[in-house]
Nucleic acid binder design. Structure first.
Lengths: 194, 194
DNA sequence: CCCTCCTCTTAAACTATCTTAAGATTTTCT
DNA sequence: AGAAAATCTTAAGATAGTTTAAGAGGAGGG
């Protein structure tokens, strides 16, 4: 049951015979992750790609003053990883932990490399996945360069309507790159100005 | 001669028989681009992926107040595109133009799709390319969330030592996300403080 | 070669965002 | 349920970065 979401996503890009699907599933490890439990910490090497089936994870960095900066949320159906660490198998800079009790599928780097050789269709699947991630980071970077905090907040609401309801406002502030106090201030100022 | 840089890059990821290489090269169009000439403007659809062989291009957005925000520089050996526009063949938000007189290779979206079917090795090549771009945007986004303007400037110098010498300071300011006046101020303040 | 345009610098006034702090409220853990 | 921890709000004072303006120097185009 846990695999269905991922298999559905894959079948939107490529068609897999049953035996290849079974082989792929055999490479995945199911893992339950409790709220606040880490899947990765700074300086560790990201050994597996992570696919979320239940709950929600987050990826963030901690700056030299100890402040968290959330780079990504990963609700069900999303992949998450310190991509540079995963690709080059070198120490990363991200922390990944669970916001709610969650369930994830893990695909190790070595199994993934093997998968590309045995089933070239996965080469295509992960190409498409990477292209889309790349494209969305490109636009997010433009937003970060050209929009105000309030505009970035509205963007976030449009892009992740389901997340905005269940996330503490503090974490949304961290994602859009402002302090929780400032986000609170601009949101409440807006209402009274209206 | 124009193709050599690209073919060398490709051969670092995959090995291509001569006939496949010839087929690939037959899909490429060479184009000379004069300083300030556009290859893409906002609202246009990105029909081709662009590979730079000489000179330097830049990709940028213009905000509602008319200010430019440079997302990427593309010296020789780099690809550049409004990735979302290229992928989905819908209107984009980026401008792409030449900083110096340049030469580029163009690979159209339709030819690229055809290429993936005829030569699966290119599926791998572009997967790796996208993964790396994705990884570097991830880290750049972390920098943008957690570093000061001066730190982002130093990062830029480390990452693009060759660019820093030939780019007007104004464009570096635009890339790191500050006004040219402010970059000038922090750079000169630093010297006198020392 | 000259003129124009672009770039760099400096400085003062302004604005967005941060810091600190404290109280009120909500959520989590036992 | 009750204690402990995290979150949200508000406000005052501080800082990073912007705006505007003006002058000097450099580079590109005819």
């Amino acid at each position: 049951m846990s695999y269905q979401l991922l298999l559905d996503n894959i079948s939107k890009c490529i068609s897999l015979p049953k035996d290849e699907e079974d082989y792929f599933v055999s490479l995945l490890k199911i893992k339950k992750v409790k709220r606040k439990q880490f899947l990765l910490q700074e300086e560790e090497v990201q050994k597996q790609a992570i696919f979320v089936t239940e709950g929600c994870l987050r990826g963030y960095a901690i700056d030299k003053n100890g402040f968290e900066h959330i780079l990504q949320f990963a609700p069900p159906g999303w992949w998450i990883a310190d991509m540079n660490s995963l690709l080059n198998q070198e120490p990363g800079i991200l922390y990944i932990d669970a916001i709610f009790n969650s369930e994830v599928l893990l695909l190790s780097k070595t199994d993934q490399d093997e998968l590309f050789i045995r089933i070239p269709g996965f080469e295509r699947f992960f190409r498409i996945l990477s292209e889309r991630s790349f494209a969305s980071y490109q636009y997010r970077m433009v937003d970060s360069l050209s929009l105000s905090a309030l505009e970035r907040y509205h963007n976030f609401c449009k892009l992740y309507p389901s997340l905005i309801e269940c996330l503490p406002q503090k974490q949304v502030a961290s994602y859009i790159g402002v302090t929780p106090e400032f986000l609170s201030a601009i949101l409440n100022k807006k209402i009274s100005a209206k």
